[in-house]
Nucleic acid binder design. Structure first.
Lengths: 124, 124
DNA sequence: CTCCAATACCTTGCGTAACAAGATATCGTG
DNA sequence: CACGATATCTTGTTACGCAAGGTATTGGAG
């Protein structure tokens, strides 16, 4: 039982929506230790979250492009002796600042959600 | 008090994106203790999160409509002796199940994010 | 040599959801 | 009776994740 086309009464999963706005943060975070290339980031994400946060390359590349455009990552092509050329991404100074800002935004939001969802919110 | 939270023009903020997919969960959660009407939900949310998770009514009503359409809430009009008619929303059984499911989805996602963002993933 | 799978990058179109802005209707008060 | 407050609803805009498809290079199998 892997993926099923069974109609589940309108339940489609909201992971896609939850990811919204988190992807830039995720990618910036994955680039923090050092540079990486596109396909690598995809597999890093799958590996580090045990599949809880997967992303396809078709999703990732637009994100990387946005980050590059915003000046948060710098880009370097490398052609290894074996294999296809790779495009390596690396955080810039602005990227590190953005990473910090987004991390703060995320934790603030998550904290508010957690507090709201915590049972026993009968007021005060 | 002294901090005036002026919205900085440069930073767009990703709260909108972060909220994505969380609103249904939030609303279902706010309806869990009992019924409430639209405007009330808006003020409940603002109050209970100290403004951390605000929503405008123009955002809320489509959410409520979706929930009604999906059978997660039932609706009842009430015309009080004083004031404008109000539309009261109440969780259905399916709504409670959905609340549980969405809560699980949220916590799973939040946990994955927290684990990813946790510093010290130098990962050998 | 040719074909094919794997690697790696990139693009297009679709669906959806939050929000701003505005419309509508009713009530209470000056 | 006009005006603000309450309350609901609608419309248009914008943004982004994703499926699906496309391109290019490489190396191995036949």
């Amino acid at each position: 039982m892997t993926k099923d086309e069974e109609r589940v009464e309108g339940r489609k999963g909201i992971e896609r929506e939850l990811k919204r706005g988190s992807l830039e943060l995720i990618v910036l975070h994955l680039l923090a230790p050092g540079e990486a290339y596109g396909y690598e980031i995809v597999s890093m994400l799958t590996a580090e979250t045990n599949g809880a946060l997967e992303v396809t390359d078709g999703t990732l590349y637009p994100v990387l492009y946005r980050l590059e455009r915003a000046g948060f990552v710098s880009v370097r092509w490398e052609t290894p002796q074996r294999g296809v050329p790779r495009k390596y991404y690396k955080l810039t100074e602005a990227g590190r600042a953005e990473l910090a800002a987004l991390t703060l935004e995320w934790t603030t939001f998550a904290r508010a959600m957690a507090k709201l969802l915590r049972p026993g919110r009968d007021g005060r």
